[in-house]
Design a protein around this nucleic acid. Structure first.
Lengths: 335, 335
DNA sequence: CTGAAAGCGCTTACAG
DNA sequence: CTGAAAGCGCTTACAG
């Protein structure tokens, strides 16, 4: 590669000092002669000078970059979340680096270390549920960070969450209104205490209780995504199977729909279905899909805004606040 | 934020020089006493030292980071492509920054400038079709870059492309075998000369010609994604509408399916459908969807590997080579 | 209105 | 086997 032009080259060519070029580049021309200004501008064009962000970052101890670690990039919501964060950041001239932890705490840790080594100014994380010590260290260091979607108890980091109890209640109420009383639920494992999963199971139980229905163990299938079909086999092919199924996310929904197709289960006649995440094909699927919409764009936008405030030292509050957002039931044909 | 520990802190605390610490960090302990080694290791743990990648990058003039600019993050293929690139890169200790040009040449240019300012070592781009001068400059500067999916004539940059002619031929042949001879096609605008679009239209025409069918103008709908439904209105509600429709990508497919649902068009009875991009819901949709599979994982992996070679100066070839990959027809229920 | 100098945190060629 | 020094490309406080 050809050697790049630096500020020193521009300075020499324009017969001024590096300081003056730097002042020009940073728009501080308060005391600069018109003529000097023009000469520098021309030189920059002529030499095709491009600033070196790395040098600038080292000097300023600020990279104008934040890191985002999503739990699983395959969720349909991830691209919306990323877009919302990009929107907020680019309007404030901040850059975004996105990493996918893939629900793996080791990857999460590796990415956090990498991003910190790259000196990002702050972090938005969908925590996998481990790495608690790491987060504590970051809190101690006063490193700007916010959580999305999940919170970790005992760590004072602001978190932007769905009102998961309400999400479950909306689904259960809708089923009950439709005359169902055998209502199942399917969720990924709860071992890492991942907030939305835990809270949605709680919400499901409470909603049933509210309607005087006992929550049956056999109606709650807790299973890895690649075991969903076996779980459904267990749950649905019994003497009193559920007639309605509440699904906690879009990836599980795909498995349920696939299973229903394989086994010729008619939705909603044989099994009514409501899932959290308003998937893009909800309107074009047959039947159309009743879903719970999460305001993830707003959540991500607000998270990004708060993080930028923290980075700029404009957030006087102590960490550990929880911001809740209301889900919305979108009734379509599957319930 | 608390001040970070630097190499100087470690050096002082371990009573050695900065050079020695740096040697240690970079694994060059050929001539280092066991004792020194241990003392440094202990100090690093004790102080919680974390390297500063920015300083290292400035010194080495190498960031170990590449940039990826996808044309449109909403394509279902994007996440696969990104994953493939991440895989290759992380195995070589390279980092990846992904940007979404959103089919907007201005955004593309802004991102390229930003990534170059950040001193990325190379670039993988799905070019939007403009910014030709910018690419020429990069070629002149010998900046490592490869194109994916699209190529730009007159610019000597290696490109990884689908055999788009074959993709069209597979679809048309399948329709013909099914007894169709009124075969339509729908594609986004061709004005930016975006390679897959142009080549797929050509392939469609050639395949029809091969079967002695005249390509009718009215059967090729060229339209923006948000105008697809109007286009279908024009094409399908005539005296001799096509009985089969070839769709060039997943986003257009969504619109077609939505339209079919609204107008109660039965797929495949009223209209057979084949699209490029093996979408995730192809198997669970009713009907299941006949698609053209692109080996995008391999394409992206090979592109990333070549780029890393270029960065390491291990690719002796002149740029401008085109690597073609074979698509595959996956016959399901919609054709 | 502009310049010389110091320093951000590293790495490396060189000296010893 | 280890250290002192220079330098990567910037920015800024200070001097004039």
């Amino acid at each position: 590669m050809k050697k790049k032009t630096t500020i020193a080259d521009v300075a020499k060519h324009a017969a001024v000092s590096k300081s003056t070029v730097s002042q020009f580049l940073n728009g501080r021309y308060s005391y600069m002669k018109e003529e000097t200004k023009n000469r520098i501008a021309d030189t920059i064009n002529e030499l095709g000078y491009q600033g070196n962000f790395v040098a600038r970052s080292l000097r300023l101890k600020r990279t104008s970059t934040i890191g985002v670690i999503v739990a699983n990039i395959l969720h349909s919501s991830s691209s919306i979340v990323i877009q919302a964060i990009e929107d907020v950041c680019s309007s404030e001239n901040m850059h975004v680096i996105v990493c996918n932890a893939d629900e793996d705490p080791d990857k999460e840790r590796k990415y956090i270390n990498m991003l910190q080594a790259k000196q990002v100014d702050g972090l938005i994380v969908f925590p996998t549920g481990k790495n608690i010590e790491l987060y504590k260290t970051m809190v101690e260091q006063d490193f700007p960070i916010v959580f999305m979607d999940r919170l970790i108890h005992g760590v004072s980091i602001d978190a932007f969450l769905l009102d998961n109890e309400l999400a479950s209640k909306l689904a259960i109420d809708c089923f009950i209104e439709g005359g169902h009383h055998r209502i199942g639920m399917i969720t990924p494992p709860l071992d890492r205490k991942i907030t939305p999963r835990i809270e949605r199971v709680e919400g499901y139980k409470n909603a049933l209780k509210y309607h005087n229905i006992d929550a049956k163990k056999e109606y709650v299938e807790i299973t890895e995504i690649n075991e969903v079909k076996n779980g459904l086999d267990r749950m649905l092919f019994t003497d009193y199977p559920p007639t309605a199924l509440y699904i906690v996310n879009d990836l599980m929904l795909m498995e349920v729909l696939s299973f229903a197709k394989e086994k010729s289960i008619n939705i909603p006649k044989d099994l009514a279905v409501i899932n959290v995440d308003d998937v893009p094909f909800a309107d074009i699927y047959t039947p159309t899909l009743t879903t719970i919409f999460k305001p993830e764009f707003e959540m991500a936008r607000d998270a990004a805004r708060l993080l930028l405030k923290k980075i700029n030292g404009e957030d006087p509050k102590k960490g550990g606040n929880v911001y809740r957002y209301k889900p919305k039931l979108i009734v379509r044909g599957s319930s």
